[in-house]
């Protein structure tokens, strides 16, 4: 079943991985998201763009209920993962976050060894029964994250001793080690130089297809390069949502046009 709302411009017959319907988010009295409807597809990269403070991170953090940790935050509306309401009482938030992983703006490896960083998620979720299984998970995760060749000889050095770009890839490896279905990335390249950024973008391209990816970015070029769908937010409203090519070549809304051409924001 598909809870398509009438007031969306979503036109597709594919089943979305995640859906947001009439989502409103409040921080105390601040109305941070207003009636947002958005679909996220399993085999695509969805980019969220918009000026600072428009609610991109807020939306992202709602998708794996990271906003639960903010005391003042209230979420109204429906959000689903595989058509199951993630805010319902039956849903275990710990499992949800394992299924919907997150990569943060600032690389935040644990001050532990590279191995332990990647192995932490599988350990707490009991994903590996034996030591070799865990080794295997760490190996494949690091390899998928394109970090294996750089760190294979020093798996027991601290994750914080890596360069910024390597740390961010370690965080991605850590996220995919839990084998999530969706990966949320909040400006994953904003603390990185162009070369490291290019590597992360390559990585996103490779991960596409295995995971549904949602990425927040301030770089129009990045959104155009890596995403298939783009959502433009403005002051808590989802102004426009559609195929990336469409948004960048033929935006429907004047606000979107102004923003992507750099006249605004």
């Amino acid at each position: 079943m598909n809870i398509q709302a009438a007031d969306t411009n979503i036109t597709t017959d594919r089943e979305p991985k995640m859906q947001a319907r009439r989502v409103n988010v409040f921080y105390g009295d601040t109305h941070a998201l207003k009636d947002v409807n958005l679909d996220i597809y399993a085999d695509e990269v969805t980019a969220l763009i918009g000026p600072s403070g428009c609610g991109k991170s807020t939306f992202l953090r709602c998708l794996n209920r990271m906003n639960d940790t903010v005391a003042s935050c209230r979420v109204k509306g429906v959000m689903t993962l595989d058509n199951e309401d993630i805010y319902s009482k039956q849903v275990d938030v710990v499992q949800l976050r394992a299924r919907v992983g997150m990569v943060f703006q600032k690389p935040n490896p644990f001050p532990k060894s590279i191995y332990d960083n990647v192995a932490y998620g599988p350990r707490i979720h009991g994903l590996a029964r034996k030591g070799d299984e865990l080794d295997e998970i760490v190996f494949t995760s690091l390899q998928k994250a394109g970090l294996w060749d750089e760190v294979k000889d020093r798996l027991d050095t601290s994750g914080t001793a890596l360069s910024g770009g390597q740390q961010q890839r370690l965080c991605i490896a850590r996220a995919i080690a839990v084998n999530p279905e969706v990966i949320l990335m909040d400006e994953p390249c904003s603390a990185l130089d162009p070369i490291a950024t290019a590597k992360i973008e390559e990585l996103i391209d490779e991960l596409k297809g295995h995971y549904a990816i949602v990425i927040v970015t301030h770089s129009m070029q990045q959104a155009a390069r890596v995403s298939q769908k783009t959502a433009f937010f403005h002051l808590g409203n989802l102004v426009e949502y559609g195929d990336t090519v469409e948004i960048f070549t033929n935006p429907q809304e004047p606000k979107t046009k102004d923003y992507i051409t750099g006249r605004y924001g």
Binding site: N64, M66, T69, V94, Q95, L96, R97, A98, G101, M102, F104, K106, N108, P109, F110, P111, Y120, G121, I124, H125, C171, R174, A175, V178
Partner: peptide
């Protein structure tokens, strides 16, 4: 202990108890 560490653990699906006893307390 920086919030980013808590976020990292929570984002991986660590329970509040695990966040405290695996990360916050040792640090």
């Amino acid at each position: 202990v920086p919030p980013s560490i808590r976020d990292a653990a929570t984002g991986l699906g660590a329970s509040p108890n695990q966040v405290v006893f695996h990360h916050v307390l040792p640090l």
